[in-house]
């Protein structure tokens, strides 16, 4: 449904985006990950029709963004990090105005308005002046304006930034609901948000797409890495670990309380086997856990270029 092929964008001599390609189908929430300057905003701006690519194509339902940007703009909803709203308007009049600006007739807007306000969880605020709303509600108004024209692609740039925990939880639900029948693309630097809301992840580094896939696929390698704490000598432990068939690599560190800590990389996900063998070998197993936040490890590795693509 949405296909991005060899997308490249230069700002002068600087390549902000190089040969980015991906394809997504409707019903999915896509997470765009990357450090500052990785090319996330440039990607979103091109998809929103704000700036043209230097080369490459974007097609939505077969319509070419470069050839027919005017036609595509009514099929794309965009919410930047700071919601663009007219503060002097009421919620309803603003969303109605944006619907008209997207090419809808007055009757079409009126017919769709109740559903949009419900989707954005704006019940009870319909006639409130936007200037008097909290940041969280302004974000919701931003979402309502992004979806009023029933777009095929909704782009949300940092949708949860500046929200409190309750608002973040509510926003997650709104984003999930939005994906019904369309593609939602979310950029975020909060990995937990991506974990909770996205079906497919795209990781950018220095303007290049370095990995894409589901969270499970991207973090699969991380499940092979674990930290163990045992009662026993560090040298004995490292010797035992290096001879274990499931262990690829191990780094041990003696602790002040007489125990030994080790970070172990397994050849496959053999955590249960390792635990059983450690106990059978007479090591007093105190602790066995994942070596860290799997997605965060993947993100940091990919974003800094220290890990291979999944």
């Amino acid at each position: 449904m949405i296909e991005v092929r060899n997308l490249t964008r230069y700002y002068g001599e600087f390549a902000a985006l190089t040969d980015v390609s991906f394809k997504v189908t409707e019903g999915q929430v896509i997470g765009l990950l990357g450090r500052n300057g990785a090319g996330k905003s440039t990607t979103l701006k091109i998809l929103a029709g704000l700036i043209p690519p230097s080369s490459g194509t974007v097609t939505v339902d077969g319509i070419d963004m470069v050839a027919e940007p005017h036609r595509l703009r009514s099929r794309i909803g965009y919410l930047p990090e700071d919601p663009p709203v007219y503060e002097d308007m009421t919620v309803t009049s603003f969303v109605r105005h944006i619907g008209r600006m997207k090419g809808m007739s007055a009757s079409e807007v009126d017919a769709r308005l109740p559903e949009v306000l419900a989707t954005a969880a704006l019940g009870g605020r319909e006639n409130q002046v936007i200037g008097t709303l909290s940041h969280g509600y302004r974000k919701r108004v931003g979402i309502a304006q992004a979806v009023i024209a029933n777009p095929r692609l909704v782009i949300l740039d940092e949708p949860t930034s500046g929200l409190d925990p309750v608002q973040i939880r509510d926003m997650r639900k709104v984003i999930r609901d939005l994906a019904k029948g369309r593609v939602v693309m979310v950029s975020s630097h909060i990995l937990r948000e991506v974990e909770h809301t996205c079906d497919w992840l795209l990781v950018l580094r220095d303007g290049k797409l370095v990995a894409q896939g589901t969270e499970e696929a991207l973090t699969a390698d991380q499940n092979r890495k674990m930290q163990i704490v045992v009662r026993g000598d560090a040298n004995t432990l490292v010797e035992w670990l290096t001879q274990h068939p499931a262990v690829e690599d191990a780094v041990t560190r003696p602790m002040s309380d007489g125990t030994t800590s080790a970070v172990v990389t397994l050849r496959a996900d053999a955590r249960e086997q390792l635990a059983a063998d450690l106990i059978a070998a007479g090591f007093g197993l105190r602790e066995l856990r994942g070596a860290g936040d799997a997605l965060e490890e993947v993100f940091l590795g990919l974003a800094s270029g220290k890990a291979g693509a999944a």
Binding site: R73, M101, K102
Partner: peptide, 14 residues
């Protein structure tokens, strides 16, 4: 100044 020009630029209006 208010960032609402994005609404104009992302609309099909010329």
């Amino acid at each position: 100044q208010m960032g609402t020009d994005v609404l104009l630029f992302t609309s099909p209006a010329s």
